[in-house]
Nucleic acid binder design. Sequence first.
DNA 1: CTAATATATGAACAAGTGTTCTTTTGTCTA
DNA 2: TAGACAAAAGAACACTTGTTCATATATTAG
Lengths: 205, 205
Amino acid sequence: MPITTTSTKNNKTKDKILKVSTVLFSKLGYKGASVRKIASEVGIRESALYNHFENKEEIFLEVAKGIFSSPFSLEHEEVAELAARGKPFLQKFTMQYKMLTFDKGNEDMFRLLMIELFQNKELRAQFMQEFHAKNIKVLSEAFFIMMQNSLIHSSDPMLVAYEYISTLFYIRLQITLMRFDSNSTDSISTQFEKHVEFFWESIKV
Amino acid sequence: MPITTTSTKNNKTKDKILKVSTVLFSKLGYKGASVRKIASEVGIRESALYNHFENKEEIFLEVAKGIFSSPFSLEHEEVAELAARGKPFLQKFTMQYKMLTFDKGNEDMFRLLMIELFQNKELRAQFMQEFHAKNIKVLSEAFFIMMQNSLIHSSDPMLVAYEYISTLFYIRLQITLMRFDSNSTDSISTQFEKHVEFFWESIKV
DNA sequence: CTAATATATGAACAAGTGTTCTTTTGTCTA
DNA sequence: TAGACAAAAGAACACTTGTTCATATATTAG
Protein backbone atom coordinates (compact mmCIF):
# COMPACT_ATOMS: atom_id res chain seq x y z
CA MET A 1 0.00 0.00 0.00
CA PRO A 2 1.93 2.99 -1.28
CA ILE A 3 1.57 6.22 0.62
CA THR A 4 2.00 9.28 -1.54
CA THR A 5 2.41 12.68 0.01
CA THR A 6 -0.31 14.17 -2.15
CA SER A 7 -3.02 11.97 -0.62
CA THR A 8 -3.97 8.58 -1.88
CA LYS A 9 -7.47 9.66 -2.73
CA ASN A 10 -9.10 9.40 -6.08
CA ASN A 11 -8.15 12.84 -7.28
CA LYS A 12 -8.32 12.42 -11.01
CA THR A 13 -10.08 15.74 -11.47
CA LYS A 14 -7.71 17.59 -9.16
CA ASP A 15 -4.76 16.32 -11.17
CA LYS A 16 -6.38 17.39 -14.39
CA ILE A 17 -7.02 20.85 -12.99
CA LEU A 18 -3.35 21.14 -12.13
CA LYS A 19 -2.26 19.88 -15.51
CA VAL A 20 -4.53 22.29 -17.35
CA SER A 21 -3.61 25.16 -15.05
CA THR A 22 0.07 24.56 -15.66
CA VAL A 23 -0.42 24.92 -19.39
CA LEU A 24 -2.67 27.96 -19.15
CA PHE A 25 -0.67 29.80 -16.48
CA SER A 26 2.52 29.27 -18.43
CA LYS A 27 0.90 30.54 -21.60
CA LEU A 28 -1.30 33.37 -20.36
CA GLY A 29 0.12 34.26 -16.96
CA TYR A 30 -1.73 34.39 -13.67
CA LYS A 31 -4.15 37.12 -14.69
CA GLY A 32 -4.70 35.84 -18.20
CA ALA A 33 -5.64 32.34 -17.10
CA SER A 34 -9.12 32.88 -15.68
CA VAL A 35 -10.88 30.27 -13.57
CA ARG A 36 -13.50 29.95 -16.30
CA LYS A 37 -10.87 29.19 -18.93
CA ILE A 38 -9.30 26.61 -16.64
CA ALA A 39 -12.62 25.00 -15.76
CA SER A 40 -13.79 24.92 -19.35
CA GLU A 41 -10.54 23.27 -20.45
CA VAL A 42 -10.93 20.69 -17.68
CA GLY A 43 -14.50 20.13 -18.77
CA ILE A 44 -16.32 21.34 -15.66
CA ARG A 45 -17.99 24.52 -14.43
CA GLU A 46 -16.07 27.17 -12.50
CA SER A 47 -17.92 26.39 -9.32
CA ALA A 48 -16.73 22.79 -9.38
CA LEU A 49 -13.13 23.98 -9.15
CA TYR A 50 -13.82 25.11 -5.62
CA ASN A 51 -14.48 21.55 -4.53
CA HIS A 52 -10.79 20.90 -5.08
CA PHE A 53 -9.10 24.19 -4.26
CA GLU A 54 -9.75 27.05 -1.88
CA ASN A 55 -9.28 29.66 -4.58
CA LYS A 56 -7.35 30.56 -7.71
CA GLU A 57 -4.20 31.44 -5.82
CA GLU A 58 -4.04 27.99 -4.23
CA ILE A 59 -4.08 26.46 -7.69
CA PHE A 60 -1.30 28.77 -8.78
CA LEU A 61 0.84 28.05 -5.74
CA GLU A 62 0.46 24.34 -6.30
CA VAL A 63 1.52 24.77 -9.93
CA ALA A 64 4.33 27.15 -9.06
CA LYS A 65 5.85 24.55 -6.74
CA GLY A 66 7.06 22.84 -9.85
CA ILE A 67 9.18 25.77 -10.95
CA PHE A 68 12.12 25.13 -8.66
CA SER A 69 11.77 21.42 -8.16
CA SER A 70 13.77 20.46 -11.22
CA PRO A 71 15.52 17.16 -10.68
CA PHE A 72 18.81 18.86 -11.47
CA SER A 73 20.74 16.35 -9.50
CA LEU A 74 24.45 16.23 -9.56
CA GLU A 75 25.40 14.58 -6.31
CA HIS A 76 28.04 16.33 -4.29
CA GLU A 77 30.43 13.43 -4.77
CA GLU A 78 29.77 13.26 -8.47
CA VAL A 79 30.56 16.96 -8.77
CA ALA A 80 33.90 16.46 -7.05
CA GLU A 81 34.75 13.45 -9.14
CA LEU A 82 33.85 15.02 -12.48
CA ALA A 83 35.35 18.37 -11.61
CA ALA A 84 38.68 16.69 -10.93
CA ARG A 85 38.69 15.76 -14.60
CA GLY A 86 37.80 19.24 -15.79
CA LYS A 87 35.96 19.40 -19.07
CA PRO A 88 33.76 16.33 -18.47
CA PHE A 89 32.12 18.20 -15.65
CA LEU A 90 31.20 21.09 -17.88
CA GLN A 91 29.84 18.69 -20.44
CA LYS A 92 27.72 16.81 -17.95
CA PHE A 93 26.40 19.94 -16.27
CA THR A 94 25.59 21.61 -19.54
CA MET A 95 23.85 18.59 -21.00
CA GLN A 96 21.62 18.42 -17.95
CA TYR A 97 20.84 22.08 -18.38
CA LYS A 98 20.07 21.50 -22.03
CA MET A 99 17.74 18.63 -21.21
CA LEU A 100 15.83 20.84 -18.81
CA THR A 101 15.54 23.45 -21.52
CA PHE A 102 13.91 21.08 -23.96
CA ASP A 103 11.86 19.08 -21.48
CA LYS A 104 8.18 19.94 -21.89
CA GLY A 105 7.38 20.20 -18.20
CA ASN A 106 10.44 22.23 -17.31
CA GLU A 107 9.89 24.43 -20.33
CA ASP A 108 6.41 25.34 -19.08
CA MET A 109 7.80 26.08 -15.64
CA PHE A 110 10.54 28.27 -17.05
CA ARG A 111 8.02 30.21 -19.10
CA LEU A 112 5.78 30.64 -16.09
CA LEU A 113 8.76 31.90 -14.12
CA MET A 114 9.67 34.44 -16.78
CA ILE A 115 6.08 35.62 -17.21
CA GLU A 116 5.47 36.16 -13.51
CA LEU A 117 8.98 37.22 -12.54
CA PHE A 118 8.24 40.93 -12.36
CA GLN A 119 4.76 40.43 -10.92
CA ASN A 120 5.63 38.22 -8.00
CA LYS A 121 8.17 39.21 -5.38
CA GLU A 122 8.35 35.73 -3.88
CA LEU A 123 9.19 34.34 -7.30
CA ARG A 124 11.99 36.87 -7.71
CA ALA A 125 13.51 35.84 -4.41
CA GLN A 126 13.30 32.20 -5.37
CA PHE A 127 14.76 32.92 -8.77
CA MET A 128 17.79 34.52 -7.17
CA GLN A 129 18.16 31.71 -4.69
CA GLU A 130 17.19 28.54 -6.53
CA PHE A 131 18.06 29.49 -10.05
CA HIS A 132 21.06 31.70 -9.58
CA ALA A 133 22.74 31.11 -6.23
CA LYS A 134 22.39 27.36 -6.26
CA ASN A 135 23.92 27.04 -9.71
CA ILE A 136 26.71 29.42 -8.79
CA LYS A 137 27.46 27.29 -5.75
CA VAL A 138 27.76 24.01 -7.64
CA LEU A 139 29.74 25.56 -10.47
CA SER A 140 32.12 27.53 -8.30
CA GLU A 141 32.90 24.44 -6.25
CA ALA A 142 33.69 22.60 -9.44
CA PHE A 143 35.89 25.38 -10.79
CA PHE A 144 37.66 25.58 -7.46
CA ILE A 145 38.57 21.91 -7.72
CA MET A 146 39.77 22.41 -11.29
CA MET A 147 42.03 25.23 -10.09
CA GLN A 148 43.46 23.09 -7.32
CA ASN A 149 44.23 20.41 -9.87
CA SER A 150 45.81 23.01 -12.14
CA LEU A 151 43.40 22.18 -14.93
CA ILE A 152 42.34 25.80 -15.37
CA HIS A 153 43.87 29.17 -14.65
CA SER A 154 43.54 30.45 -11.13
CA SER A 155 41.03 33.18 -10.49
CA ASP A 156 37.84 33.78 -8.56
CA PRO A 157 35.73 30.59 -8.90
CA MET A 158 32.54 32.56 -8.26
CA LEU A 159 33.29 34.89 -11.15
CA VAL A 160 34.03 32.00 -13.48
CA ALA A 161 30.79 30.35 -12.38
CA TYR A 162 28.88 33.56 -13.04
CA GLU A 163 30.33 33.88 -16.51
CA TYR A 164 29.47 30.30 -17.26
CA ILE A 165 25.89 30.20 -16.02
CA SER A 166 24.92 33.51 -17.60
CA THR A 167 25.41 32.15 -21.09
CA LEU A 168 23.48 28.98 -20.28
CA PHE A 169 20.59 31.11 -19.09
CA TYR A 170 20.62 33.27 -22.18
CA ILE A 171 20.59 30.25 -24.48
CA ARG A 172 17.71 28.79 -22.52
CA LEU A 173 15.71 32.00 -22.74
CA GLN A 174 16.24 32.26 -26.45
CA ILE A 175 15.30 28.65 -27.11
CA THR A 176 12.20 28.97 -24.96
CA LEU A 177 11.16 32.06 -26.86
CA MET A 178 11.63 30.40 -30.23
CA ARG A 179 9.74 27.29 -29.22
CA PHE A 180 6.91 29.39 -27.85
CA ASP A 181 6.35 30.69 -31.35
CA SER A 182 6.96 27.24 -32.81
CA ASN A 183 10.03 28.60 -34.54
CA SER A 184 12.80 26.23 -35.47
CA THR A 185 15.65 26.11 -32.97
CA ASP A 186 18.07 24.80 -35.57
CA SER A 187 20.11 27.98 -35.67
CA ILE A 188 20.82 27.72 -31.97
CA SER A 189 20.56 23.98 -31.30
CA THR A 190 24.27 23.40 -30.79
CA GLN A 191 24.89 26.59 -28.85
CA PHE A 192 25.16 24.67 -25.58
CA GLU A 193 27.91 22.48 -26.96
CA LYS A 194 29.67 25.44 -28.51
CA HIS A 195 29.58 27.15 -25.15
CA VAL A 196 31.29 24.22 -23.47
CA GLU A 197 34.02 24.21 -26.10
CA PHE A 198 34.55 27.95 -26.11
CA PHE A 199 34.59 28.23 -22.36
CA TRP A 200 36.88 25.32 -21.78
CA GLU A 201 39.37 26.60 -24.32
CA SER A 202 39.19 29.96 -22.57
CA ILE A 203 39.96 28.75 -19.07
CA LYS A 204 42.08 25.64 -19.49
CA VAL A 205 45.70 26.03 -18.53
CA MET B 1 11.59 77.20 -35.11
CA PRO B 2 12.13 73.56 -34.19
CA ILE B 3 9.73 71.08 -35.72
CA THR B 4 9.22 68.04 -33.57
CA THR B 5 7.84 64.91 -35.12
CA THR B 6 5.31 64.40 -32.38
CA SER B 7 3.34 67.50 -33.36
CA THR B 8 3.97 70.94 -32.02
CA LYS B 9 0.56 71.17 -30.43
CA ASN B 10 -0.13 71.86 -26.84
CA ASN B 11 -0.25 68.29 -25.66
CA LYS B 12 0.68 68.61 -22.01
CA THR B 13 -1.96 66.11 -20.94
CA LYS B 14 -1.07 63.64 -23.65
CA ASP B 15 2.55 63.70 -22.53
CA LYS B 16 1.54 63.14 -18.94
CA ILE B 17 -0.61 60.18 -19.95
CA LEU B 18 2.37 58.65 -21.71
CA LYS B 19 4.66 59.31 -18.79
CA VAL B 20 2.25 57.79 -16.29
CA SER B 21 1.47 54.87 -18.60
CA THR B 22 5.14 54.09 -18.99
CA VAL B 23 5.55 53.77 -15.25
CA LEU B 24 2.38 51.73 -14.75
CA PHE B 25 2.84 49.43 -17.74
CA SER B 26 6.41 48.68 -16.71
CA LYS B 27 5.31 47.95 -13.16
CA LEU B 28 2.01 46.14 -13.66
CA GLY B 29 2.11 44.97 -17.25
CA TYR B 30 -0.46 45.65 -19.94
CA LYS B 31 -3.35 43.92 -18.19
CA GLY B 32 -2.44 45.14 -14.73
CA ALA B 33 -2.35 48.79 -15.71
CA SER B 34 -6.04 49.60 -16.16
CA VAL B 35 -7.26 52.74 -17.88
CA ARG B 36 -8.78 53.86 -14.59
CA LYS B 37 -5.45 53.53 -12.79
CA ILE B 38 -3.73 55.48 -15.53
CA ALA B 39 -6.39 58.20 -15.61
CA SER B 40 -6.47 58.52 -11.85
CA GLU B 41 -2.69 58.87 -11.73
CA VAL B 42 -2.84 61.54 -14.43
CA GLY B 43 -5.58 63.30 -12.50
CA ILE B 44 -8.46 62.94 -14.96
CA ARG B 45 -11.40 60.59 -15.53
CA GLU B 46 -11.09 57.50 -17.73
CA SER B 47 -13.31 59.01 -20.40
CA ALA B 48 -10.97 61.95 -20.83
CA LEU B 49 -8.19 59.60 -21.93
CA TYR B 50 -10.13 58.92 -25.09
CA ASN B 51 -9.76 62.55 -26.18
CA HIS B 52 -6.04 61.82 -26.61
CA PHE B 53 -5.90 58.17 -27.66
CA GLU B 54 -8.14 55.84 -29.64
CA ASN B 55 -7.93 53.13 -27.01
CA LYS B 56 -5.70 51.47 -24.44
CA GLU B 57 -3.65 49.62 -27.02
CA GLU B 58 -2.71 52.85 -28.78
CA ILE B 59 -1.31 54.13 -25.51
CA PHE B 60 0.66 50.94 -25.05
CA LEU B 61 2.05 51.00 -28.58
CA GLU B 62 3.18 54.58 -28.12
CA VAL B 63 4.90 53.64 -24.87
CA ALA B 64 6.38 50.45 -26.32
CA LYS B 65 8.07 52.45 -29.07
CA GLY B 66 10.57 53.47 -26.44
CA ILE B 67 11.72 49.91 -25.78
CA PHE B 68 14.01 49.57 -28.77
CA SER B 69 14.89 53.19 -29.34
CA SER B 70 17.81 53.24 -26.93
CA PRO B 71 20.44 55.70 -28.07
CA PHE B 72 22.98 52.91 -28.06
CA SER B 73 25.12 54.64 -30.55
CA LEU B 74 28.53 53.45 -31.44
CA GLU B 75 29.14 54.78 -34.91
CA HIS B 76 30.38 52.31 -37.43
CA GLU B 77 33.69 54.13 -37.72
CA GLU B 78 34.09 54.34 -34.00
CA VAL B 79 33.57 50.60 -33.73
CA ALA B 80 36.31 49.95 -36.25
CA GLU B 81 38.67 52.35 -34.59
CA LEU B 82 38.15 51.05 -31.07
CA ALA B 83 38.09 47.41 -32.13
CA ALA B 84 41.50 47.84 -33.69
CA ARG B 85 42.78 48.54 -30.22
CA GLY B 86 41.03 45.56 -28.66
CA LYS B 87 40.15 45.90 -25.04
CA PRO B 88 39.12 49.57 -25.21
CA PHE B 89 36.25 48.56 -27.43
CA LEU B 90 34.95 46.07 -24.90
CA GLN B 91 35.26 48.69 -22.20
CA LYS B 92 33.38 51.32 -24.17
CA PHE B 93 30.65 48.95 -25.30
CA THR B 94 30.15 47.52 -21.85
CA MET B 95 30.03 50.88 -20.14
CA GLN B 96 27.31 51.99 -22.53
CA TYR B 97 25.42 48.84 -21.74
CA LYS B 98 25.86 49.48 -18.05
CA MET B 99 24.58 53.03 -18.40
CA LEU B 100 21.46 51.76 -20.12
CA THR B 101 20.95 49.30 -17.31
CA PHE B 102 20.96 51.99 -14.66
CA ASP B 103 19.21 54.70 -16.63
CA LYS B 104 15.70 55.20 -15.27
CA GLY B 105 13.94 55.41 -18.60
CA ASN B 106 15.74 52.46 -20.14
CA GLU B 107 15.23 50.47 -16.98
CA ASP B 108 11.45 50.92 -17.26
CA MET B 109 11.56 49.90 -20.90
CA PHE B 110 13.60 46.82 -20.14
CA ARG B 111 11.18 45.81 -17.41
CA LEU B 112 8.24 46.34 -19.73
CA LEU B 113 9.96 44.20 -22.32
CA MET B 114 10.56 41.38 -19.86
CA ILE B 115 7.02 41.53 -18.49
CA GLU B 116 5.34 41.43 -21.87
CA LEU B 117 7.86 39.24 -23.67
CA PHE B 118 5.83 36.05 -23.46
CA GLN B 119 2.52 37.81 -24.00
CA ASN B 120 3.33 39.70 -27.15
CA LYS B 121 4.61 38.02 -30.28
CA GLU B 122 5.62 41.26 -31.94
CA LEU B 123 7.75 42.09 -28.91
CA ARG B 124 9.47 38.71 -29.10
CA ALA B 125 10.36 39.29 -32.71
CA GLN B 126 11.74 42.72 -31.91
CA PHE B 127 13.65 41.35 -28.97
CA MET B 128 15.39 38.85 -31.20
CA GLN B 129 16.11 41.47 -33.83
CA GLU B 130 16.83 44.68 -31.95
CA PHE B 131 18.18 43.31 -28.72
CA HIS B 132 19.95 40.20 -29.84
CA ALA B 133 20.82 40.30 -33.53
CA LYS B 134 21.87 43.94 -33.58
CA ASN B 135 24.23 43.51 -30.67
CA ILE B 136 25.64 40.34 -32.14
CA LYS B 137 26.30 42.21 -35.37
CA VAL B 138 28.23 45.06 -33.78
CA LEU B 139 30.18 42.77 -31.48
CA SER B 140 31.08 40.18 -34.08
CA GLU B 141 32.36 42.90 -36.40
CA ALA B 142 34.53 44.17 -33.61
CA PHE B 143 35.86 40.73 -32.73
CA PHE B 144 36.55 40.08 -36.39
CA ILE B 145 38.74 43.15 -36.53
CA MET B 146 40.54 42.09 -33.39
CA MET B 147 41.28 38.71 -34.96
CA GLN B 148 42.62 40.35 -38.10
CA ASN B 149 44.89 42.45 -35.95
CA SER B 150 45.97 39.34 -34.04
CA LEU B 151 44.80 40.84 -30.77
CA ILE B 152 42.68 37.82 -29.90
CA HIS B 153 42.65 34.16 -30.83
CA SER B 154 41.01 33.26 -34.09
CA SER B 155 37.62 31.62 -33.94
CA ASP B 156 34.03 32.31 -34.98
CA PRO B 157 33.36 36.02 -34.28
CA MET B 158 29.64 35.36 -33.97
CA LEU B 159 30.22 32.78 -31.27
CA VAL B 160 32.50 35.10 -29.35
CA ALA B 161 29.89 37.84 -29.66
CA TYR B 162 27.20 35.50 -28.38
CA GLU B 163 29.27 34.51 -25.40
CA TYR B 164 29.96 38.14 -24.62
CA ILE B 165 26.45 39.56 -24.93
CA SER B 166 24.81 36.75 -22.99
CA THR B 167 26.61 37.67 -19.80
CA LEU B 168 25.80 41.35 -20.25
CA PHE B 169 22.15 40.46 -20.56
CA TYR B 170 22.19 38.29 -17.47
CA ILE B 171 23.82 41.01 -15.40
CA ARG B 172 21.26 43.50 -16.63
CA LEU B 173 18.37 41.21 -15.76
CA GLN B 174 19.71 40.61 -12.29
CA ILE B 175 20.31 44.27 -11.59
CA THR B 176 16.86 45.19 -12.89
CA LEU B 177 15.30 42.58 -10.62
CA MET B 178 17.18 43.82 -7.58
CA ARG B 179 16.33 47.43 -8.21
CA PHE B 180 12.69 46.54 -8.73
CA ASP B 181 12.61 45.35 -5.13
CA SER B 182 14.75 48.30 -4.05
CA ASN B 183 17.48 45.86 -3.10
CA SER B 184 21.04 47.05 -3.02
CA THR B 185 23.02 46.26 -6.15
CA ASP B 186 26.32 46.49 -4.31
CA SER B 187 27.05 42.80 -4.58
CA ILE B 188 26.82 42.96 -8.35
CA SER B 189 27.76 46.55 -9.12
CA THR B 190 31.18 45.81 -10.57
CA GLN B 191 30.10 42.70 -12.45
CA PHE B 192 30.20 44.54 -15.76
CA GLU B 193 33.81 45.54 -15.23
CA LYS B 194 34.72 42.06 -14.04
CA HIS B 195 33.17 40.66 -17.18
CA VAL B 196 35.34 42.86 -19.38
CA GLU B 197 38.46 41.77 -17.52
CA PHE B 198 37.62 38.10 -17.47
CA PHE B 199 36.60 38.00 -21.08
CA TRP B 200 39.55 39.92 -22.36
CA GLU B 201 41.97 37.72 -20.48
CA SER B 202 40.18 34.72 -21.96
CA ILE B 203 40.41 35.73 -25.58
CA LYS B 204 43.52 37.87 -25.86
CA VAL B 205 46.39 36.27 -27.68
C1' DC C 1 -17.47 89.55 -26.45
C1' DT C 2 -18.90 85.67 -29.08
C1' DA C 3 -18.57 81.63 -31.48
C1' DA C 4 -16.02 77.58 -32.20
C1' DT C 5 -13.29 74.02 -30.63
C1' DA C 6 -10.90 71.09 -27.41
C1' DT C 7 -11.05 68.83 -23.28
C1' DA C 8 -13.20 67.49 -19.15
C1' DT C 9 -17.00 65.09 -16.57
C1' DG C 10 -20.30 61.60 -14.90
C1' DA C 11 -23.15 58.09 -15.91
C1' DA C 12 -23.94 54.05 -18.27
C1' DC C 13 -22.98 49.86 -21.16
C1' DA C 14 -21.78 45.04 -21.94
C1' DA C 15 -18.58 41.78 -20.89
C1' DG C 16 -15.48 39.54 -17.81
C1' DT C 17 -13.54 38.66 -13.13
C1' DG C 18 -13.29 35.56 -8.60
C1' DT C 19 -16.27 33.56 -5.52
C1' DT C 20 -20.49 31.72 -3.09
C1' DC C 21 -24.58 29.79 -2.76
C1' DT C 22 -28.41 26.09 -3.41
C1' DT C 23 -29.68 22.24 -5.86
C1' DT C 24 -28.85 18.15 -8.51
C1' DT C 25 -26.19 14.19 -9.77
C1' DG C 26 -23.20 10.47 -9.07
C1' DT C 27 -20.59 6.96 -6.27
C1' DC C 28 -19.33 4.24 -2.61
C1' DT C 29 -20.68 1.89 1.86
C1' DA C 30 -23.57 -0.36 5.34
C1' DT D 1 -31.80 -1.07 -1.39
C1' DA D 2 -31.08 2.99 1.44
C1' DG D 3 -28.23 6.45 3.21
C1' DA D 4 -24.03 9.22 3.26
C1' DC D 5 -20.86 11.90 1.08
C1' DA D 6 -18.18 13.83 -2.72
C1' DA D 7 -18.46 16.34 -6.84
C1' DA D 8 -21.03 18.52 -10.32
C1' DA D 9 -24.18 22.24 -12.21
C1' DG D 10 -26.44 26.60 -12.56
C1' DA D 11 -27.57 30.84 -11.02
C1' DA D 12 -26.31 34.75 -8.73
C1' DC D 13 -23.22 38.13 -6.23
C1' DA D 14 -20.23 42.20 -6.17
C1' DC D 15 -16.69 44.14 -8.54
C1' DT D 16 -13.52 45.42 -12.36
C1' DT D 17 -12.65 45.81 -17.14
C1' DG D 18 -12.54 48.86 -21.76
C1' DT D 19 -15.37 51.91 -24.08
C1' DT D 20 -19.19 55.24 -25.34
C1' DC D 21 -22.13 59.15 -25.05
C1' DA D 22 -24.44 63.25 -23.73
C1' DT D 23 -23.32 67.15 -21.23
C1' DA D 24 -20.60 70.67 -19.09
C1' DT D 25 -16.47 73.49 -18.76
C1' DA D 26 -12.19 75.60 -20.47
C1' DT D 27 -9.47 77.52 -24.07
C1' DT D 28 -8.70 79.69 -28.28
C1' DA D 29 -9.89 82.47 -32.62
C1' DG D 30 -12.47 85.94 -35.13
